[in-house]
């Protein structure tokens, strides 16, 4: 019964909403709101058909490249900055400023500097999503437990092994918080960077469909973007739950005690 109840609870509302959409739009003759069946047809035919290779993969490739670049740079910089009080004080206002710039406004500037190719898009994604990751890493590294840190020092934990076994694990809950924020910024920038003079990509294709008033394709593209955002956040949660299992367990134990 309880399994049945959980399934009902999880699927109940989505099924009701989809059914409502389906029936409300079934006989729709409105230009902007085509029937859901048409949208789904176009989703399957276009987006899971030729566009998957032509537009979705290039987008995902740039997203992955930009995000990976941001992660590497932010972790390296974050550890360096987090361990030194002086460097931290020196860089904090500068970083706060860069973080406060709405990342999409950097697109016009990066077009000036890097042209219109893949490189520009990857740099835009990397530069935009590195700030949440960097600032969270700095904060996590700064807040390493002092007793642990001293104990490590007494036991002669130095250099690489200190980083690997003490600093990174104890900063990882904060780092993951930053990585999650960074991922949603990266997806936004993936779309935005493709709205300017691109030749392929999800953002490009959706806007192209909208400009040519291909309404079912436009809706289908929006569903595709939503699906992508949902799947990526699901994937992220799986990785995080694996990597931070010790932390979540610790938190639960502390709360119940």
């Amino acid at each position: 019964m309880s399994v049945l109840r959980r399934v009902g609870m999880t699927l109940g509302l989505p099924v009701i909403l989809l059914a409502a959409w389906w029936f409300a739009s079934a006989g729709s003759t409105s230009f902007f709101f085509p029937p859901l069946s048409e949208i789904l047809d176009s989703l399957v035919e276009e987006w899971f058909g030729p566009r998957l290779a032509a537009d979705v993969w290039p987008s995902l490739y740039r997203l992955a490249a930009g995000y990976a670049l941001a992660v590497v740079v932010s972790l390296a910089l974050g550890v360096l900055i987090g361990t030194s009080r002086t460097v931290r004080a020196l860089t904090e206002p500068v970083f706060e400023f860069f973080r406060a710039i709405p990342p999409p406004v950097l697109v016009p500037i990066f077009i000036l500097l890097f042209g219109l190719g893949d490189g520009m898009k990857i740099v835009v994604i990397a530069f935009g999503c590195m700030w949440p990751i960097l600032l969270n890493t700095v904060e996590g590294v700064r807040a390493v437990d002092e007793v642990l840190s001293d104990t490590g020092r007494v036991y002669g934990l130095r250099g690489w092994s200190r980083l690997r076994h003490l600093v990174l694990p104890s900063a990882s809950p904060q780092i993951y918080a930053g990585l999650r924020q960074g991922l949603s910024v990266a997806i936004i920038l993936m779309v935005i960077s493709e709205l300017f003079a691109a030749e392929n990509g999800l953002g490009y294709a959706v806007v192209q469909a909208q400009r040519s008033f291909a309404i079912p394709e436009t809706w289908a593209g929006m569903l595709m973007l939503g699906l992508l955002g949902f799947l990526l956040s699901l994937l992220f949660r799986l990785v995080e739950n694996r990597q931070l299992a010790w932390y979540h367990g610790l938190r639960r134990a502390q709360r119940s005690s």
Binding site: L13, V191, I192, M222
Partner: peptide, 26 residues
């Protein structure tokens, strides 16, 4: 809360820029 949890988890990660086309159309 329990009934809406899965829907919220689905809608929340949808990037808001996905709404740009429909915003322009409307």
């Amino acid at each position: 809360r329990e009934f809406s949890a899965s829907t919220i988890e689905f809608l929340r990660p949808i990037p808001s820029v996905a709404l740009i086309p429909i915003a322009v159309l409307l």
